[in-house]
C-alpha cells in the first residue's frame, strides 16, 4: 500500500467520522442528503459481496466492515432516530434514486470486465459511487447556511477521491498490471463532480467567509 492510498482511505474514514460526529453528538442531520447516504449503503453492499470469501488483509476486511456498518447506521439514524430525523430536510432532498440507480445498473450490465453476477455488481458499485454524491451536492446548493461539519464532510469525501487518483497513477508506474479502465474512468468522473464544490470551498476558506454555493 502506498502513501496516497493510505491517505485516501484515512480521508474517507475521517469523512464518515465527521458525519457520525454531527449525527451522534449534535443529534442533527441538517444539510445531509439521505438519498446520497442510501446510495452509499447500496454501493458498499454491492461492492463488498466477497468480503468473507476473498481475504486480502486484516486492514482491508476491517475497513470494509467499517464502511458497511457506518453507511447503514447513518441511514438508520436519519430515518428512524426520533431526534435526528426531525432535522432532516425532507422537502429539499428531492433527488430521485431511480434516476441514478437504473442507468448505473444498465451501464454495468453493458460495460463490465466479465459478465458474472459478482463482477456486474462490482462494476455497478463503481458507477453508482461515481454519481452518489449528486443528491448531496443539489441539497448543498439549496441550503442557505451550510454548517462547518457538512462542508468538511463533503470536502473530505472529495479529497478521498482525488487521493485515490494519485494512488492509481503511483501504482501505474510502480506495478506491472493491466489497468482496470472502468475503475479509472468512474473514479475520474466522480472526482470531477467535486470540482465546482472545491472551488467555492477554497474561496470561502481564503476569504474567511461562510461557504455558500450559488444556485
Amino acid at each position: 500500500m502506498n502513501i496516497f492510498r493510505l491517505a485516501g482511505d484515512m480521508t474517507h474514514l475521517a469523512s464518515v467520522l465527521v458525519l457520525l460526529l454531527k449525527i451522534h453528538t449534535i443529534k442533527s442531520c441538517a444539510g445531509i442528503s439521505l438519498k446520497t447516504q442510501e446510495l452509499y449503503a447500496l454501493v458498499f453492499a454491492t461492492r463488498y459481496l466477497d468480503i468473507f470469501t476473498n481475504y486480502i488483509s486484516f486492514y482491508n476486511t476491517i475497513m470494509k466492515l467499517i464502511f458497511l456498518g457506518s453507511s447503514f447506521s447513518i441511514v438508520w439514524y436519519i430515518k428512524r432516530h426520533k431526534i435526528v430525523h426531525r432535522s432532516y430536510d425532507k422537502d429539499q432532498d428531492t433527488f430521485r434514486h431511480w434516476f441514478i440507480v437504473l442507468p448505473c445498473l444498465v451501464l454495468a450490465l453493458l460495460i463490465n470486465e466479465r459478465f458474472t453476477f459478482k463482477e456486474v455488481m462490482w462494476t455497478f458499485s463503481l458507477y453508482l459511487e461515481a454519481v452518489a454524491i449528486l443528491p448531496q451536492l443539489v441539497l448543498l446548493q439549496r441550503t442557505r447556511n451550510i454548517d462547518n461539519l457538512t462542508g468538511q464532510y463533503v470536502f473530505l469525501l472529495g479529497a478521498y477521491r482525488a487521493l485515490y487518483i494519485l494512488n492509481w497513477i503511483y501504482r501505474y508506474f510502480t506495478e506491472d498490471h493491466y489497468i482496470h479502465w472502468i475503475t479509472w474512468i468512474a473514479g475520474l468522473v466522480q472526482t470531477l463532480l467535486y470540482a465546482d464544490f472545491f472551488y467555492y470551498y477554497f474561496q470561502s476558506w481564503k476569504n474567511n467567509a461562510k461557504l455558500e454555493l450559488p444556485a
Binding site: 482511505d9 474517507h12 482491508n60 494512488n167 506495478e175 498490471h177 493491466y178 482496470h180 475503475t183
Partner: peptide, 10 residues
C-alpha cells in the same frame, strides 16, 4: 507478462 491488477482497494 502483465496480469489484471488485484481488486485490493476499498
Amino acid at each position: 507478462e502483465k496480469d489484471q491488477a488485484p481488486k485490493d482497494e476499498l
